[in-house]
């Protein structure tokens, strides 16, 4: 599902991750979080070809390893989802009451 492109020579702070079977749905949401982190120099994603179910995700940081940033991003996105579900469900309950 997830593999590294051939940028092993460069330092740990620059990485392109390839997500199998992912698209703009995850790419853009994750980019939106990660590109706004303090230590991140650059973050972007691309779907290189529409017929291939692949998403390339690039992270460049000043100091923190890119992998750590990616993990943090995924955790934060998970938190966003949790909060959205909780808030939505409580609002639905409220709406049904009134």
């Amino acid at each position: 599902m997830l593999s590294l492109a051939g940028d092993d020579e460069s330092s740990l702070t620059c990485r392109t991750y390839i997500f199998q079977d992912e698209s703009h749905t995850l790419g853009n949401a994750l980019k939106c979080i990660i590109s706004r982190y303090e230590d991140v120099q650059f973050c972007g994603y691309t779907v290189p070809h529409p017929a291939e179910a692949k998403m390339h995700f690039r992270i460049q940081t000043y100091e923190t390893p890119a992998l750590e940033i990616l993990k943090r991003g995924l955790k934060d996105l998970e938190k966003v989802c949790d909060h959205t579900v909780n808030l939505f469900e409580s609002e639905v309950k409220e709406f049904c009451k009134s």
Binding site: T25, L67, L70, K75, C81, F88, V92
Partner: peptide, 24 residues
């Protein structure tokens, strides 16, 4: 429709979770 929305958000969460497990 309210269940569809909740399911959609949960799918995004599950994606993150399975990717995190893989990364770890």
């Amino acid at each position: 429709p309210n269940i569809i929305f909740v399911e959609a958000v949960k799918i995004l969460k599950d994606k993150c979770k399975s990717l995190l497990d893989e990364l770890n």
